[in-house]
């Protein structure tokens, strides 16, 4: 049986590990490399690592190399991916999957061409959404620019273009630790036939169960809960198993 993945998501700004609330108020919470080492030693299912500065500063090859040398688990790298060359660079550095967000909104062909050249399995479409006037709208540029896309339409569009997975973050819930946006997760998961990773809002064990059972997420990602509580990915997976969800222990 395929196991439901629990994925720590690490974000970097000014070369520090940061944690935000609703995509703002980025708080420095320490050294990224020690966080990477801890998660690797805890044998996590997978890790997502995003450099929030890369869109303006460019991709820092040395930084991603430093990370990937410590990771013997599946690794998604992202931040500032603008071209097929960037995707290739990240895969060569040690990424297994590459997360693409803003540049896909600007030039959707990066998804189609990336999937054709490198395979769908390594193209992760990262979608940031928030509720605006009763509709889930997609935002780009780190949550700063509202696009004309609804979350469901954009998810279908990237699927049709060959994305292999959707990394879906609720800007409204991000950092609050009050639970995932289940309606958002469910509407996107039901609309596409590719796996959806839910992110944004996990604060307690039951939040994960709800994202999987109600939201129908294929995988659950979180950040704050691992930084601000004693909870480990393993605690979460043990709880999933107790609740009848297959997980890797």
């Amino acid at each position: 049986m395929l196991k439901t993945r629990v994925i720590p998501c690490l974000t970097i700004k000014d070369l520090r590990l940061v944690k935000s609330v609703n995509f703002s108020e980025h708080r420095n919470i320490g050294s990224y490399i020690s966080a990477v080492r801890v998660f690797n030693s805890r044998d996590v299912d997978e890790m997502i690592f995003l450099d929030l500065d890369a869109r303006k500063d460019g991709i820092k090859k040395w930084l991603l190399e430093e990370i990937s040398k410590e990771c013997f688990m599946p690794l998604t790298l992202g931040g500032g991916v603008k071209s097929l060359d960037d995707i290739n660079l990240l895969l060569r550095i040690g990424a297994d999957k590459v997360s693409i967000n803003t540049s896909a909104i600007e030039t959707p062909d990066i998804i189609s061409e990336g999937a054709k050249k490198f395979g769908s399995q390594c193209v992760v479409s990262s979608i940031d959404a928030r509720l605006i006037g009763g509709k889930y709208k997609v935002f780009s540029a780190g949550g700063k620019s509202e696009t004309s896309w609804s979350a469901v339409d954009w998810a279908k569009e990237v699927e049709q273009r060959g994305a292999g997975e959707i990394f879906l973050t609720s800007i409204d819930k991000e950092g609050l630790m009050e639970g995932y946006d289940l309606e958002l997760v469910k509407s996107v998961s039901d609309a596409v036939n590719i796996p959806v990773i839910a992110c944004g809002g996990a604060g307690k064990l039951d939040d994960f169960i709800l994202a999987i059972k109600i939201g129908r997420a294929s995988a659950v990602a979180a950040a704050s809960i691992f930084q601000y509580t004693q909870m480990t990915p393993r605690n979460i997976k043990e709880y999933l198993v107790e609740n009848g969800i297959e997980a890797r222990l």
């Binding site: 292999g164 294929s218 890797r248």
Partner: peptide, 11 residues
């Protein structure tokens, strides 16, 4: 009924 790609940990 399963989604593709097959991504994740399996026996």
């Amino acid at each position: 009924i399963n989604k593709l790609p097959h991504i994740g940990w399996n026996n």
